[in-house]
Design a protein around this nucleic acid. Sequence first.
DNA 1: GGTATGTTTGTAATCATTACAATTATGTTT
DNA 2: AAACATAATTGTAATGATTACAAACATACC
Lengths: 144, 144
Amino acid sequence: MITNIPHFKKVLLTQGLKPTYQRLEILAYLEKYKIHPTAEMIYHALIRDIPTISKTTIYNTLNALIRKGIIHEITITGTETRYDYHGIPHHHFLCNQCGKIIDIDVECPYLAKKELGGHRIEELQGYFKGICKECLRSGHKAKV
Amino acid sequence: MITNIPHFKKVLLTQGLKPTYQRLEILAYLEKYKIHPTAEMIYHALIRDIPTISKTTIYNTLNALIRKGIIHEITITGTETRYDYHGIPHHHFLCNQCGKIIDIDVECPYLAKKELGGHRIEELQGYFKGICKECLRSGHKAKV
DNA sequence: GGTATGTTTGTAATCATTACAATTATGTTT
DNA sequence: AAACATAATTGTAATGATTACAAACATACC
């Protein structure tokens, strides 16, 4: 994997996390494949390079990275958590037909808001759902 | 339960769903208690009135109501689906401390959008997370 | 009232995620 | 470089939400 390992080491150390082989590979995967993968997808991809890696490590690492604000979790599908390594806050689109999750950069006046109606805002997730451009083009068969 | 049963009957019939006792009670519960309950919460509440009701019926009914667009599902917590009976589109706020889910009515320019970047939009969910007004007031202890 | 169809129910299965305890690796100290 | 304390990894088992399935039941229509 052609990745900037020294950079990820710094990111982890800055947040007080030990830069283990597993954590570096998980970060490298998330940085390279911006497909908002599930824990399962990451596990499946990394087991080639690290045959001993366990799913628990995937979850442990992802949860540690979330706690430190290095990655974000996306609950757009409702069935499983998706993970996102992407600095700039943005919204997401889920295609109800092909299942793809796409980054959506819209002018959202609330992305910067720290307060709303007296509540303290720490996070905002915007989930759009529908049929993606590509599925529309290739003749849209309704989802069963 | 003081509810408008005839109205719910009409709602169900209009959508081609038989207005069974279970479905009417589930709708009545959702209309009365706008707490964005889980399936478990609905089950627990209804078992008093309908001792034979099964959790499968709760799920079957909720999924049927979603398919017909009568209710909406909210995946803000990431751990379980919450259900919302509320006609007007709106966003939600989850308090990371007390777990409460609050309706948020903000001026969102995308709530009416039917298209975005070539993708067809059928649904939009806006999830704010943080510490609610009440938890802030009662001395905010950080979540562990 | 009888019948076809849709609904409800209970149990078992599935899937994602977490708990836990033992093993192993890491960074630091000597 | 060896030893130490601590943190991370691993495998297995447990949990919790949700769905699959088939039998029993109720509903609307004739």
